[in-house]
Computed example of a mutant assay.
Amino acid sequence: MPVFIKSFFNKHFPARQLLIRQNGEVKHVVLAPWLQVSVLAIIFIAIAWISVSSIRVYMQTHQISHIEQTQLDKQVQWQQKVKQQQQRYALQQEQLAELEQKQALLQGMIESLPASISKDVIKLEGELESSPINENESEFHEPLEEDKTQNEHAQTSFEQRYIMLNQQYDTNFTLLAAQINQRHDAIIEILQGTVLENALAQHLTLSTQTTAQGGPLDILDESKIPSTFLVIADKLLLLNQLESFLTALPNTLPLPAAKYYISSNFGLRKDPMNKRRAFHKGIDLAGWHKTEIFAPADGIVLRAGRNGGYGNFIELEHKNGVVTRFGHLNKINVKKGQAITKHDVIGLMGSTGRSTSTHLHYEVLIDDKHVNPLKITKALSRVW
């Protein structure tokens, strides 16, 4: 083996002379085999070192690029999460706004319900809590596993509460609609076929021209409320107008029930004085002398004093074109132009004027047309 190596070195690395000419002189340098081997080894080592270093630099550069790409991917994912959270937050805010408008409408309707409808069946829930999602993009960070669980739980809780409140509002509006429709239909059915229909139509027309109203404008955002709910709200407004109309009518007779009897009805009869056929434009309510006579509804005194066959006479003007008249009074307790409240004592029963005995002659006029007071009272008593 040493002979082979020695032969290899002598063959490939023989002693060589290197001639160098400088300033006219020639010099020679002998390159021994060991020097040639050393130089070759140094060159080989340098090449190997450069190759290894280049490979390491390439691998590090690739690793850095991979890390940077990973960071970019994470940033894109975070931005997507931010966008998803913002979208979810915007949806929650929209849902909250819808619930708030429904609640405001429901509360307003409950407060506006007439006394004829019970409020006990309606149940209101507290306002929905604010969204747990952070809307500030700059504060977003990748959540820990525990944070993710809490966030998902909060989102699930919000959705469950939203569904519950939405269902509850739907149920309450359905209950309200049923009661409002029932009350409305009952009133319309009772008023059909009576002279009150025309008075009602006139009242609804004039109600749109009502004065002495005002206040800050605070309207509902109808775009966030289902049209079916708005229909119910409009039906309630109409019902309140009906109730207002009924409240202003003389829905009772002007005497306590135990203190009178009907001695003459409305319509055709024999006149008590001459026994001839005549039309009786009111009803006669007989009772004890000086029995108190009450105003059947709020109104203004149009006339108070002597009036021919009526004797001592009072005429009251009420709302919606309704007028009531009271004749044969023993005493008048009011004067012209005086404002009268329902159940105020306006006079005492007597027998003045064209009368055969103590009684009250009572008339009701609607739009200057005489109507049967008993028919009106009976119809209105069914409403209440």
Rank of each mutant, 00 (worst) to 15 (best):
K81E: 13
K259H: 12
E243F: 03
G309W: 05
N274W: 05
Q87H: 12
F279R: 09
H203S: 14
R277D: 15
L238P: 00
Q92D: 10
P296D: 04
L19Q: 11
L348N: 05
L106T: 01
W384I: 11
V334Q: 03
F326Y: 15
D221F: 07
S351M: 10
W34K: 13
T171W: 10
H328C: 05
K335R: 14
G309S: 14
K148Q: 15
V371E: 02
E129N: 15
P114H: 04
N274Q: 05
E125K: 11
F173Y: 01
T174I: 08
K378G: 07
R382C: 08
A212D: 14
K275L: 10
T247N: 12
A46C: 11
G215H: 05
Q101D: 03
H289S: 08
I55T: 11
Q150N: 13
F9M: 11
Q213V: 15
E145H: 07
F326E: 00
E145W: 09
L329D: 00
D170A: 12
P132I: 01
S227M: 13
T174Q: 13
G321N: 06
I67K: 10
A90F: 08
I188S: 07
L96I: 09
I293V: 13
Q22M: 09
P272D: 01
T174P: 00
A97S: 14
G347L: 01
A178P: 00
K319Y: 06
E197V: 15
H343E: 14
Q182K: 14
F326R: 01
R16E: 12
Q160Y: 11
H12V: 08
S51Q: 07
L204G: 02
N134V: 09
M349A: 01
G267V: 06
H361S: 02
H370K: 08
Q155D: 10
H318G: 02
D284N: 08
S355Y: 03
G299R: 00
F13R: 03
D234I: 04
K81Y: 12
A278C: 11
P33H: 05
G193C: 07
W384R: 14
L128H: 05
I20P: 02
L220H: 07
S38P: 01
E25D: 10
N10M: 09
